[in-house]
């Protein structure tokens, strides 16, 4: 069979099918891409990591929260101002690889004036914050998550109302 000669299968008829062929290939490639999209073998723990860290800050004994030294009871939501330091935070949460997670905690009073700031893994926080704030992508950068909640802070055995702003930074 010859394509272009009379009596053969005409090129004209085959040319008519080119749009259909292109469409068929496009549809199948599209379905394949969709299937690939739904086959998810990546695990992104960042949202969970920041929740765990936030809850550790709020509920952990021997951290920034006020703890009854006799009973060992922790009072979540009441910050002991004396414990609100970089040292306490670094002692309560340590990673064997420093570029794992970092956080900045800002304590505000009721008038939203800054009372005190503390860092967890402050070195890496200050290194990565500019990249994260400018939303630079890539392995060298990080994602930053901010959350502000109302709390009490304990100063000279008196509970005062205030807010805590946590900025949790997770390297990519």
């Amino acid at each position: 069979m010859k394509l272009n000669k009379k009596g053969g299968v005409g090129a004209e008829e085959i040319l008519e099918f080119i749009p259909y062929i292109v469409l068929t290939v496009a549809v199948m490639a599209g379905i394949f891409l969709l299937i690939n999209l739904f086959i998810n073998i990546t695990v992104d723990p960042k949202p969970l990591q920041r929740e765990v860290l936030f809850n550790r800050l709020i509920y952990s004994p021997n951290s920034i929260m006020y703890m009854d030294q006799v009973t060992g009871r922790v009072y979540p939501g009441i910050i002991a101002l004396d414990n609100f330091t970089n040292e306490t935070l670094d002692k309560s949460i340590t990673y064997s690889y420093e570029r794992q997670i970092a956080a900045k905690l800002e304590l505000y009073d009721q008038k939203k004036e800054l009372v005190k700031t503390a860092y967890l893994n402050g070195v890496w926080y200050t290194r990565l914050e500019p990249l994260a704030q400018s939303r630079i992508k890539g392995e060298g950068s990080a994602d930053i998550f901010t959350r502000t909640i109302p709390i009490l802070y304990r100063k000279n055995s008196v509970n005062l109302p205030g807010y805590i702003k946590t900025m949790i930074l997770i390297p990519n």
Binding site: M1, G8, V9, E13, I14, E16, F17, Y20, T24, V25
Partner: peptide
């Protein structure tokens, strides 16, 4: 003529179906 117009269209259809099946 080996094929008339109808046969040519049917043959082209057949090629298209074959292509579709292989794809």
């Amino acid at each position: 003529y080996l094929f008339n117009k109808k046969a040519k269209t049917m043959l082209a259809n057949l090629f298209y179906v074959m292509f579709g099946l292989i794809l």
